[in-house]
Design a protein around this nucleic acid. Sequence first.
RNA 1: GAGCCCGUAGCUCAGCCGGUAGAGCACUUGACUUUUAAUCAAGGGGUCGCGGGUUCGAAUCCCGCCGGGCUCACCA
Length: 496
Amino acid sequence: MAEEPEEGEENQFRAARLQKLAALKALGVDPYPYEWPRSAEAKELEARYAELPPDAVTEDRVSVAGRVRAIRNSGMFIDLYDASGKIQIFSDRKSLDEAQLALLGLLDLGDIIGVEGIVRRTRRGELTVNASRIAVLAKALLPLPEKYHGLADLETRYRQRYLDLIMNEESRAVLQKRSRIIATMRRLLIDRGFLEVETPMLHVIPGGATAKPFVTHHNALDMQLYLRIAPELHLKRLLVGGLSDRLFEINRNFRNEGISPRHNPEFTSLELYQAYVDYGAMMDLTETLIAEIAREVLGETRIRYGEREIEFAGPWPRESMAALVKRETGVDFLTIAADEDARAAARRLKIEVADGAGWGRALEAVFAARVEAKLVQPIHVTGFPREISPLAKTDRGDPRLTERFETYINGWEVANAFSEINDPLDQQQRFEAQMAERERGDEEAQRLDADYVQALEYGMPPAGGLGIGIDRLVMLLTDSPSIRDVIAFPTMRPKG
RNA sequence: GAGCCCGUAGCUCAGCCGGUAGAGCACUUGACUUUUAAUCAAGGGGUCGCGGGUUCGAAUCCCGCCGGGCUCACCA
């Protein structure tokens, strides 16, 4: 691409622009000045002069700035875009001096300029600034993609996101909405008394989730560190400390796993903990948060995703994994006791399960294969097997299960929550069971974090914990088909 | 990791039953003082992703590699 100087020098577009750059400098113009005293943005002017009739001229002098996106009539008309929108610039040969006319002739599509002049509306109804002064604020050396079709190539859009943002309004809108979604989430939580905290990205023991970590090395300490797969265990240490009885973190997690339209190696999650409540409170909070965010950002709770319509207004149904599996397959796992019978039941449904898999894994495998994709409208799936939930409290009514739920929307897991284990001896045993699985070859089984268990030994209040995958939530709220559309710089294999 | 599809000018795309590469926009030069995908005239621009093979001849057919997309598997 154009980053390589040799190639760039040969580029006809760049060569022509370098000549113009030299010509500007010869005119005594600094093509990269330090500032421009802007007085208005395009959208602001559009609103302020909404009532200005065609052919009307004001005496209002404004100063605007932005990127040149279209030049018509040899520079007489320029479409100038700032982050808020478009404003047309009119340059009258008769009212600009020689130097300004020369500068006008050296402008290219893509240049960032500042313009000062009076506001008027043209006969054809276009709000326009009549330029009395034009300044180059940043000379562009490379051409923009085609103005009408824009930038369509997905690879270029992800690799050179700035070009995508310049050319595609929808891409801008998606990332702007992402920001508003997160800001709204943060505000709602702070309004409810939650304290925002930051916990380490570099972990000695990667815990809090079942996933493969990225490994790194600290030179001074000469030790292996892991990028975190979840903030969970540190957030609960803060709960032990009583920093706050309600706390949350919105931040990145890193998982060394596959890339897909719904998976990026680094992704953003909300994780929160509330003392003295159980997972039921987390269900209430999940549906309130997500519905409120939709209302705030989209103005309604009914969203469209592709061909589907999804209603976010609560309350959402709450059903157990086993009940959903039974409804879908007719098989009631709750009546099956032995692990081997559970495996056999799954296999009768043509679902693969490992030979060592227990009752819980078999149930989950059937749920994943037969039920998940059908959970389009929001639903809290409860009754997660203990076997796959090493940080969740045992279900009050059934020792095979935990007080854990995952919220599904559009067939995706969007939230994961439970009543947190605060019994250190229970937690120790759960970790040991995970370690045993690890030794049997499950490299994603969770590792024993003795320091965390020690923290629990000082006493952690009973608490509900909740994690929400923000990227997927943004996908739903922006009708984006790929997670790469909602992450400004998705992970890509380097080119060449 | 597996299967299917894609990669041609700066961009958007045609060409792909093999015969020496095309359009629109963009660019250069000129015309044009009320345009808005401005218009009109002329011109320049391509190792057809990379490497190998088949052939008198390859953008086109075959093989390998690189990059991307989708689906599946793992996962949020």
